[in-house]
Amino acid sequence: MTIVQTCPAPIMQHETVQMAHGAGGRLSQALMQRVFMPHLHNSFLDLLDDQAKLDLPSGRIAFTTDTYVVSPIFFPGGNIGELAVNGTVNDLAVGGAKPLYLSAGFVLEEGFSLAELEVIVKSMAEAAHRAGVMMVTGDTKVVGKGQCDRIFINTSGIGVIREGVNLSCRNLKAGDSIILSGTVGDHGMAIMTSRTGLSFQSRITSDCGALNGMISAMLDAVPFTIHAMRDPTRGGVAATLNELAQSSSVGIEIHETTIPVKPDVRGACELLGIDPLHVANEGKLVVAVAAGDAGKVLEVMRNFDHGRDAVIIGSVVDDHPGMVVMRTVYGSRRIIDLPLGEQLPRIC
């Protein structure tokens, strides 16, 4: 009789992220096989090379990167993974590019739940599928407990810019109409009201979504007179309008009554003393278009979920270059300034 003595086999089935998951060894591979590949696999990733080798159609390339550190990582209407895909897709699309390929870099905190990671990865795959882009390369690092907040994601993206399209925040011209694709403040207030500590409950859901389908249709209909597009994320519509006005050295005048705000978002903003124009959005679009074509653009936008509530909120003017002015319901005017950093709930 022989006794085979073996060292105990290392545990391969973990419930949480281990330092070794990022060390490049067997656990790294297991993480790849168990969590990432089932959802993300495609002809590029399947090769497991260190780089993706891409054939790009001719034309100018748009390239962008963004890092996502949102807290909480799951919020009503989405999660950090979905946000990371849609955000980068939108950054490409607003430049007039057709988004094609994405990369994803993950920083995971030791102890982070693998089940939650899988949910995030799965929704990234779904978001990429919806937006018609491919996740072609990626990376994962693990840091010690307390060195990051559960999960950070960086996504970069490449797209090809349509021939003849020249969108830039410097292109605004006096007389342009300013279109907003829908209600403001949904994402930021969804995040704020779902943070623990604030005694709030709301059913506000994030507007997190990819805009490339709608933008593509808009450019099909009106290829040359859309002058600029922006997705008003951090700093909200106020920050975006200010950037546009400053970059183009023009004034922008908007009308208070036209700005769409969902009722519960408005309620939460009133309670917390926050201006909805300063609150972040993740699936909205601000468009500057020659006034004559504004109607056509609106019509196209309203065919899409993300543009159903699209409205003209104002116009580009010669006066007060670099400044955004709002006409109030009472006929008075006030400056819409850049918000100052983080939006804080106030009592006074």
Partner: peptide, 11 residues
């Protein structure tokens, strides 16, 4: 109490 403000609720 739970107070409703236009659809958002606060304690």
């Amino acid at each position: 109490g739970t107070i409703d403000v236009n659809g958002s609720k606060t304690r």
